[in-house]
Design a protein around this nucleic acid. Structure first.
Length: 768
RNA sequence: UGGGGUGUGGCCAAGUGGCAAGGCACCUGGUUUUGGUCCAGGCAUUCCCAGGUUCGAAUCCUGGCACCCCAGCCA
């Protein structure tokens, strides 16, 4: 697996796994990453990879790599190979657990036959268009296919002949026999197999029928004994089919599908289709273009795999659709590189500087590879000569306020070199600055002056005569808009950032010639760079991985983007009460309607009366409880808030396992002040789970409310004494902390303390 | 419009009836031979809205609103 020191943060899926382990449902964990080999992996996949492999690692289980290759038309070995390379590069190892869905085709075929034999699947011969028509719409149910009634023998025969290649593409399909009226469109007799006379990249011509996702995927999971099958949100509707297939094929294992939100990131696109358009349209150099969010692209750009893993941990795993800001990714990359990248100097936009009072030979100066705060050792020599290059934007003839780089007469430090001062500016005919004439102070070698005088600015530089020319590829965000898909009218390609790649001819210090070409550097004050691994020419080519944070740029740049407008809170439309199921029932049942009104007349809240009179069972239960304790308001409120919502949609109250008189007893004890509401809820849980008489439970467990000050005060004093910090903060004005103290008291007394009394005593104890 | 989901600062995201974690971004100030890093501080009286239950609600109840997904022989 990846670095075993890596902390894998907890998420809601881990909660589920913890529960499954605790309940004994599973005693180990198996996950899988199941890409379809029809494109390159991108950072969105990295989220899934890190989740699946990371989860397996966290629980000491295993994670399979499985190619979900059930559609020969779009898949290829190129993708199979690139995916393996990318996953390994990310730092994960699937060991022996490499699988292909297509290797399960025989087993899947058997499952399909089993389904047919059980009358749970049939061969349909409708055309594609007809199938669509018969499916109905989201609001109307579909219709049965005329072929739905074929005999088991006929289905078996047809299905075997489909496999034998007797039919053309599209002539028949195998469908599950479930029904055509499910509100879930995917459950309307989903297609299981289609005919495709196509060569498969892994199985060749073995097959001419191919299973559909809904049939294949769950079986793959089951065959591999996957325990937790993690997929993205758009498959939520498919879960019902998943479970149906697992159940009806009667396979041995029952994997559980859990969905999480896929990753979206600012200024890029993640969908395979859109990535494919960029690649095939020649808008980028290929799948590994460094501007792409593909793993191949990020790798070529120079993003370390550790940064990608850390990023995936930082963004979390939830079910909420979200888009992560690019800044978070960039910060993660910088974080990773800051601690390990050697610093060198390169000038990306050279401006010539002549040191007029320097005449000697080349001077070789010591320069550390790492700043004081990076605990790594190492240094190199850099050549100082009469002619140098500095960065064009490090000079301003008319400096703005706060500019402390080079300007006429303003002394600056050349990093690891000397203090220099600009004396003269040389321009060409068009007024463009072409050279600066400077003087240096020979007593400031290595950047410190003998007299201790300070300079504000330090700039980087490269010898004009000893420096090495190079090409610098300054990559930036691919799109100019944070969400290129935002405008549905506009094609996302119109949002491309014209400056996503800026080519520069620059110059770099000669020391890099001795380095491993895969070194990732920090070019001081410019960003992190590393050589383009695909470069075959003689000229050095460096890709910019990411810039450095630049707080100065903020002062100078016009804000390119208006500050994000505060999301206008959607004005709530006036709430027109819509007709509910309960309203409907009352309209037909005058008894219900009458009581709805009379309960409100007796002082019950409208909502409470509404729920109580929603159907006759509920009302009868309520009335029965009233016979034991006649306080309609107390009983009704408690019933609605604590009990009724636990009843299943189609079930009646009676199914719950609590009787009206048990409810009445509970409410009565609360009303008589014998127990607190908190205790009443706990006793309710107890009754629901184990049955029994509420009064007896209260008596046996000593749950009566304690309001007696003499009993309470000593305990409260202890609590106050145990939390001096909180006391101080409370006295400093944080009065919300009263809740903390009450909570402590409730915990200490097992919920029996009278919170009103506790509050009073506490107020006294805590007042300064 | 039927069904399935999701709403916590500018962006992610903890939180499961008792003090609104953390990161990114942003704003101060300090250190600094990188306008980098690092350090210190600031940044949600409030959790989509409205009611209700409770001593106490982001959390429980009722009702609403917004956004995402589903009518491929794609996955």
């Amino acid at each position: 697996m990846a670095d075993s020191h890596e902390v894998i943060p907890h998420n809601f899926i881990h909660d589920i796994i913890d529960a499954d382990l605790a309940s004994g449902k599973h005693d180990h964990v198996v996950t899988r990453f199941p890409p379809e080999p029809n494109g390159y992996l991108h950072i969105g996949h990295a989220k899934a990879i890190v989740l699946n492999f990371g989860t397996a690692e966290k629980y000491d289980g295993r994670c399979h790599l499985r190619f979900d290759d059930t559609n020969p038309l779009t898949e290829s070995v190129e993708y199979v190979e690139s995916m393996q390379e990318d996953i390994q590069w990310l730092g994960y190892d699937w060991g022996d657990h490499l699988f292909y869905a297509s290797d399960y085709f025989e087993k899947m075929f058997d499952c399909a036959v089993h389904l047919i034999r059980r009358g749970k699947a049939y061969v349909d011969s409708l055309s594609m268009e007809e199938i669509r028509e018969y499916r109905g719409t989201v609001t109307e149910p579909g219709r049965f296919s005329p072929y739905r009634g074929r005999s088991i023998d006929e289905n078996l025969d047809l299905f075997h002949r489909m496999r034998a290649g007797e039919f053309a593409d599209g002539e028949h399909v195998l469908r599950a026999k479930i029904g055509m009226d499910s509100p879930n469109m995917l459950m309307r007799d989903p297609l299981l197999y289609r005919i495709r006379h196509a060569r498969h990249h892994h199985r060749g011509d073995d097959w001419c029928i191919y299973p559909m996702y809904d049939f294949a995927h769950c079986l793959e999971d089951a065959f591999e004994a996957v325990t937790h099958s993690l997929c993205s949100l758009e498959f939520e509707n498919n879960r019902e089919v998943y479970d149906w297939v697992i159940r009806e094929t009667e396979v041995e294992n029952q994997p559980q599908q859990i969905e999480f939100a896929r990753l979206n990131m600012g200024y890029t696109v993640m969908s395979k289709r859109k990535l494919l358009r960029l690649v095939e349209g020649g808008l980028v150099e290929g799948w590994d273009d460094p501007r792409l969010p593909t793993l191949a692209g990020l790798r070529r750009r120079g993003v370390p795999p550790e940064a990608i893993r850390t990023f995936c941990h930082r963004i979390g795993v939830t079910k909420a659709n979200s888009r992560v800001e690019l800044e978070l990714f960039e910060n993660t990359i910088r974080d990773e590189l800051n601690m390990r990248a050697p610093r060198v100097m390169a000038v990306t936009d050279p401006l010539k500087v002549t040191i007029t009072n320097f005449d000697g030979d080349t001077e070789w100066l010591d320069a550390s590879y790492y700043p004081h705060d990076v605990p790594l050792e190492g240094s190199r020599k850099i050549p100082f000569t009469r002619e140098l290059f500095i960065e064009r934007d490090d000079f301003e003839e008319h400096p703005p306020k706060g500019f402390y780089r080079m300007s006429p007469g303003q002394e600056v430090r050349l990093r690891y070199g000397y203090y220099v001062t600009c004396q003269d500016v040389i321009k060409d005919d068009s007024g463009r600055i072409i050279e600066l004439l400077c003087t240096y102070d020979p007593d400031t070698r290595s950047g410190t002056s003998a007299d201790g005088r300070k300079v504000k600015g330090t700039i980087h530089w490269v010898s004009a005569t000893e420096g090495i020319p190079c090409e610098l590829r300054l990559y930036d965000r691919l799109f100019a808009q944070e969400d290129p898909e935002e405008d549905k009218e506009k094609d996302f390609l119109e949002c491309l950032n014209p400056d996503s790649l800026i080519l520069r001819r620059g110059v770099i210090e000669p020391s890099v010639l001795d380095d491993d070409p895969t070194t990732t550097y920090q070019f001081e004050r410019r960003g992190y760079f590393r050589q383009d691994p695909k470069n075959t020419g003689d000229l050095l080519v460096f890709n910019r991985v990411v810039t450095l944070r630049d707080t100065w740029a903020k002062h100078t740049e016009e804000p390119t983007e208006a500050p994000k407008p505060k999301k206008p809170r959607a004005p709530q439309k006036p709430q027109e009460p819509t007709e509910s199921e309960r309203d409907r029932l009352r309209a037909e049942d005058s008894l219900l309607a009458d009581r709805y009104q009379s309960l409100q007349d007796q002082g019950l809240h409208e909502e409470t009366a509404d729920v109580l009179t929603g159907d006759r069972h509920t009302l009868a239960f309520f009335d029965e409880a009233l016979k034991s304790f006649h306080d309609p308001n107390a009983v009704g409120t408690w019933l609605v808030n604590e009990v009724l919502h636990r009843v299943d949609e189609d079930a009646a109250v009676d199914s719950l396992g609590i009787t009206p008189d048990q409810v009445a007893a509970l409410v009565e004890m609360v009303s008589e002040d014998r127990i607190s509401t908190q205790i009443s809820r706990e006793v309710l849980e107890d009754v629901l789970a184990n049955g029994g008489d509420p009064r007896a439970i209260v008596a046996d467990q000593g749950l009566e409310k304690v309001s007696d000050e003499d009993a309470l005060r000593p305990q409260l004093e202890e609590i106050v004494a145990a939390h001096p910090d909180e006391v101080q903060r409370f006295r400093d004005g944080n009065d919300r902390l009263i809740g903390f103290f009450i909570g402590q008291a409730m915990k200490k007394t097992g919920g029996t303390a009278d919170p009103v009394a506790v509050r009073e005593i506490l107020q006294d104890l805590l007042s300064p």
